[in-house]
Computed example of a mutant assay.
Amino acid sequence: MNLATRLDSFHQRVRCNQWLGYFTIFVRILLAYAFIFAGFVKVNGERFTSLSNNHPMGQYLEALFHTGYYYTFIGVVQMLAGILLLIPRTALIGAMLYFPLILNICILSYAVRFDGSLLTSPLMVMANLYLLGWDYHRLKYVLPFKRSAFKKMLPAKKNRSKKFAFKFLSGVFVITATAVGFIVLMNFKVIMPRNTIDDCEYQCPESSNETACISFCECIHEQGNSLNDCLEKFGKDFNK
């Protein structure tokens, strides 16, 4: 049995379960809400956060805010992706539009070590991938796999199972919990700018070099230097 056949078989088993259908609707609503809200803030011409301009993410968002209609355009696209997710017929288009946006947010959050979305953005990426997989029978037509007729890949409504998908949802829970644990542990091992200087300095007593940590926080929040410059300075101070 080749990979394409295995994927078709697994997809059909997943689509057979009514509970997973409910779970999919739940995921769509959550993702849609997040982007519709975030998009509305941009369309309404408001700043997305109250971060200081000295913060790495604050610098980025401030610059983005001053891009004029580009800032509004991003908000419109986010709202459009959210609305499309809520409509069954357009849910796949919404998920495809949503994915590059949330992936970009995820990478940005880690690039500047932004607390606000370090945890939520990777979980949203995973949820988005699940939605893409849910519509795999349609998505596969743009992938280099052998194509099957829709009717062969999807179960008839009368054949759908109402048995609770314990194994699948347990797997989702384990993967999510593992991802959350990994992200939290990883963040404990690196110095973070945090959202304010007080939050930043709160982590310093746990550091093996408290003075270097405080200097890093001042470098970010008071001097407004770049994250890379402050990390470089922290490394030098730490090794003194």
Rank of each mutant, 00 (worst) to 15 (best):
P155Y: 00
L3E: 10
Y60M: 14
Y136D: 01
L51Y: 03
E46P: 02
M186R: 13
F168I: 13
S9F: 11
V180L: 11
L3R: 11
R89F: 07
N2G: 13
K158G: 09
S207L: 04
R89M: 10
L154E: 06
G181A: 10
L154S: 01
K158N: 12
E210S: 12
F182W: 15
L132R: 03
F166C: 05
G116D: 13
I220T: 01
F99L: 14
G171Y: 05
E222M: 11
H137L: 02
C16N: 14
L80E: 02
T72F: 09
N17Y: 04
N187C: 08
A165R: 01
A95T: 00
L80C: 10
C16M: 12
I214E: 10
I175T: 12
K162L: 13
Y70T: 10
S52D: 08
N239D: 07
S117T: 14
N209Q: 13
G68Q: 12
L85H: 04
P88N: 13
E222T: 14
H55I: 04
K152W: 13
G45C: 06
T67V: 00
R15I: 04
Y141D: 13
N225H: 14
D115E: 12
P144E: 05
Q18E: 09
I197G: 02
G45Q: 09
L139I: 05
P122R: 01
F99Y: 09
G171M: 00
P193R: 03
R147I: 14
K233R: 15
P88L: 13
K42F: 04
C213E: 02
R15D: 02
D115M: 10
F182V: 13
M153A: 09
S208E: 13
R15K: 13
L143E: 14
R194L: 06
A165D: 03
T24H: 12
S50M: 08
H66N: 15
L61H: 05
L84C: 07
R147Y: 12
L108G: 04
R138T: 06
G116A: 10
Y60F: 15
F23P: 01
F35M: 11
S52Y: 03
G181L: 05
I197F: 07
Q18L: 14
L227H: 05
S52M: 08
A95E: 04
G235P: 00
L154C: 10
A179K: 00
N128D: 15
L119K: 05
A212P: 05
K157P: 09
L84I: 06
R28P: 02
K146G: 08
C200T: 04
I197T: 07
F114N: 03
F10G: 08
L20F: 04
Y70N: 06
P88I: 06
N104V: 08
G171A: 00
R160F: 07
F26E: 08
W19A: 11
V190M: 00
I214W: 03
I191S: 03
